[in-house]
Structures are given as structure tokens and as C-alpha cells.
């Protein structure tokens, strides 16, 4: 109980939200038919490429939020 300001219920919530944030990019990439197409293009690059690259940014944001939540509200034992 190093971080005694955080209740157990809140901690569980933090882990559930973090788990969801980690899983969303996985699902996005799993749905191949949604992005395996040419248009809309970006600077001549087909959707297939730029969409997946964009998800790198979204993934980093989601993972970063999850890391922040666990680090600050998840308590010491993780």
C-alpha cells in the first residue's frame, strides 16, 4: 500500500481502462478489410499505407495514456 490515496476500486478501474486502451489498436489492425483499399489517397500514397502509419501515432497516444494511468493511479504493485 505505497500509494494509499488510491482506493482498490479505483485501481481496478485503472487497469480495466488501460487494458481497453492496449487492445483497441490491436482490433483496429485486425480489421484488415476496413483498410485494405486505395482511396482516399494521401499525397499519392494509398489508404492501406497511410492509415496503418497513422495508427502508430494513435497507438502511442493510447499506450501513453495507459502508462500514465498505471504509473500514477495504479499503485505500486503492478
Amino acid at each position: 500500500m505505497a500509494d494509499n490515496k488510491v482506493s482498490d476500486g479505483k485501481r481496478v478501474g485503472v487497469y480495466v481502462v488501460s487494458a481497453i486502451l492496449l487492445v483497441i489498436p490491436f482490433i483496429a489492425y485486425l480489421l484488415l478489410p476496413t483498410y485494405d483499399r486505395v482511396s482516399p489517397e494521401l499525397a499519392g500514397v494509398s489508404f492501406f499505407y497511410w492509415y496503418q502509419t497513422l495508427w502508430l501515432v494513435i497507438s502511442a497516444v493510447m499506450f501513453g495514456v495507459a502508462a500514465y494511468l498505471i504509473n500514477h493511479l495504479g499503485g505500486e504493485a503492478s
Binding site: 502511442a60 499506450f63 503492478s78
Partner: peptide, 24 residues
């Protein structure tokens, strides 16, 4: 510490943008 590790790991997909561009 594990908190630093968690945060830097979380941000590593950004590094992948370089890989995606190079792939192109």
C-alpha cells in the same frame, strides 16, 4: 524503474513512423 520503462515502451510506436516511411 518500471514506471519509466512502461512510459518509454508506450511511446515506442512513434519510432515506427520512421520504419513506415523507410518501407515506402
Amino acid at each position: 524503474n518500471e514506471k519509466n520503462l512502461r512510459m518509454s515502451t508506450a511511446l515506442l510506436p512513434i519510432y515506427g513512423i520512421g520504419l513506415a516511411l523507410l518501407a515506402l
